[in-house]
Every structure is written in structure tokens, then in C-alpha cells.
């Protein structure tokens, strides 16, 4: 059975594809956001969005450096 995160991802269809951007990095960021949103949808708890944004920003920069963006 598809997870909710997979279903959300599927609902975006091809709209997350952008030829001008690095697709791996785009997938990295969109997957992180989708997984977080799916968790929140199911759990209903309210983690601090500022903290999540900070963590994600740091992860994104690391990933971008790895990919030598």
C-alpha cells in the first residue's frame, strides 16, 4: 500500500520537474518537505516549524555542497 507521503508526492505529478534546476537537489528538498507534511498530517502534533526549517536549511546546504552546486 502506498504511504501517504508517496500519495502526496504522486499528486504533484510532474510539476516538481524543472530543467533549470538540479533535479536531485529538488527531489531532496521536496521529499523532505513531503515526508514532514505527511508525518504531521497523520500525527497531528505541532513540531516547531522554525526548528524544522533551520534543520532543513542546514541539510539542504550540505546536500548542495555535496553535489557541488
Amino acid at each position: 500500500m502506498e504511504t501517504i507521503a508517496e500519495k502526496i508526492k504522486k499528486s504533484f505529478d510532474k510539476s516538481l520537474i524543472n530543467k533549470d534546476l538540479n533535479q536531485e537537489l529538488m527531489d531532496f528538498l521536496s521529499n523532505k518537505l513531503i515526508n514532514e507534511a505527511a508525518d504531521r498530517l497523520q500525527e497531528g502534533y505541532d513540531k516547531q516549524p522554525e526548528k524544522i526549517a533551520k534543520d532543513f536549511a542546514a541539510n539542504l546546504i550540505t546536500k548542495a555542497n555535496e553535489l557541488k552546486l
Binding site: 501517504i4 500519495k7 502526496i8 499528486s11 528538498l29 518537505l33 513531503i34 514532514e36 507534511a37 505527511a38 504531521r40 498530517l41 516549524p49 522554525e50 524544522i52 526549517a53 533551520k54 532543513f56 536549511a57 539542504l60
Partner: peptide
């Protein structure tokens, strides 16, 4: 719907 999920994604994205 996934509207709440999209709203949450949007908030986090703006924070980033």
C-alpha cells in the same frame, strides 16, 4: 485532502 500538508510544506519552505 492534503491541503493541511501543503500548507505545512509551504510554511517550512518559506522558513528555509
Amino acid at each position: 485532502s492534503y491541503l493541511h500538508a501543503f500548507e505545512h510544506m509551504s510554511n517550512i519552505n518559506e522558513g528555509i
